[in-house]
């Protein structure tokens, strides 16, 4: 298993995928931080995630931190794309022939991708977290806040973020195993998260906790419990739900791949 992960990591880092996505995620994080501070004076932005009431009883710095990292949590879509790209790149460049010659059991191939995606997703979370802390902390202290107070709160949000990123990267692999056309898979993922989920959640509020983004919001609450939202699952239920979605897609993808002719 270690050898498989080493091989997959070597394959991943020799493509432009992880570097490009990390760079874009960091840029988006930076812009979010900027936007947050611009808006903060006049009532602040809506609650991170776009719904639910703000929780005014938590200390001010924690609120700021949560807002900042809330922007980070929203970037989990990049982790999803990371997962999608990790598997679809093999089909786009036809390297899958070699991969299947080395690993003829296609379920094992998908499993390897799920594992490396989970690790890469977690790594992306840590990088975005560090970027948020650095960028947000510096801006915060420049505006009279406290950097160390922010840093001290890290433990409360980091586990949830790492968890959500890892799970979403696995979900991406699941989707990519079923939709091996890279462009199609990206379009479907972005279309779902940017458009369809909002429509679903807007029309049927009861479905929100069952949607991947609702589950992500629940799962990101792993160590806090402070942002308890009555209409969401708790953190481990949310995590299991994302994992279930990912594994369901990956299972379907493996079954389809098993019959697929690689010509």
């Amino acid at each position: 298993m270690i050898a498989v992960l080493r091989a997959e990591w070597l394959k991943l880092r020799t493509t432009s995928i992880p570097w490009l996505l990390t760079a874009i995620a960091l840029v988006v994080t930076g812009l979010s931080i900027l936007l947050y501070f611009v808006n903060h004076g006049n009532g602040g932005p809506e609650h991170p995630g776009g719904f639910g009431p703000p929780t005014p009883d938590i200390p001010h710095t924690v609120q700021q931190l949560r807002d900042l990292l809330g922007a980070g949590v929203g970037i989990y879509v990049f982790s999803l794309l990371l997962g999608v790209l990790i598997i679809t790149v093999e089909f786009r460049h036809k390297t899958v022939t070699t991969s299947f010659l080395v690993t003829p059991h296609r379920t094992r191939f998908v499993l390897g991708k799920l594992l490396i995606a989970a690790l890469a997703g977690a790594a992306l979370a840590l990088i975005v977290l560090a970027g948020t802390l650095l960028g947000g902390g510096i801006t915060l202290s420049a505006r009279g806040g406290s950097f160390s107070a922010l840093a001290h709160q890290l433990g409360a949000v980091a586990p949830g973020m790492v968890l959500v990123y890892a799970l979403f990267a696995m979900l991406g692999v699941g989707v990519g195993s079923l939709l091996t056309n890279q462009v199609a898979a990206i379009v479907v993922c972005l279309g779902w998260f940017l458009i369809l989920e909002n429509i679903f959640g807007g029309i049927w509020h009861g479905t929100v906790k069952w949607l991947p983004s609702g589950a992500a919001l629940a799962a990101s609450n792993v160590s806090a419990g402070t942002r308890e939202q009555i209409f969401l699952f708790n953190w481990w239920q949310g995590s299991l739900l994302i994992l279930a979605y990912g594994l369901a897609f990956a299972t379907m993808g493996s079954l389809v791949l098993a019959r697929r002719d690689i010509t």
């Binding site: 091989a7 020799t14 790149v89 991969s99 690993t103």
Partner: peptide
Amino acid sequence: LEATSFHPTRRAEDHLKSVALAGG
């Protein structure tokens, strides 16, 4: 095999290394 391809940004050595690692 014919029509097998390589990832364009991967170095020849890294391609072989990844196959060697995965294939034991």
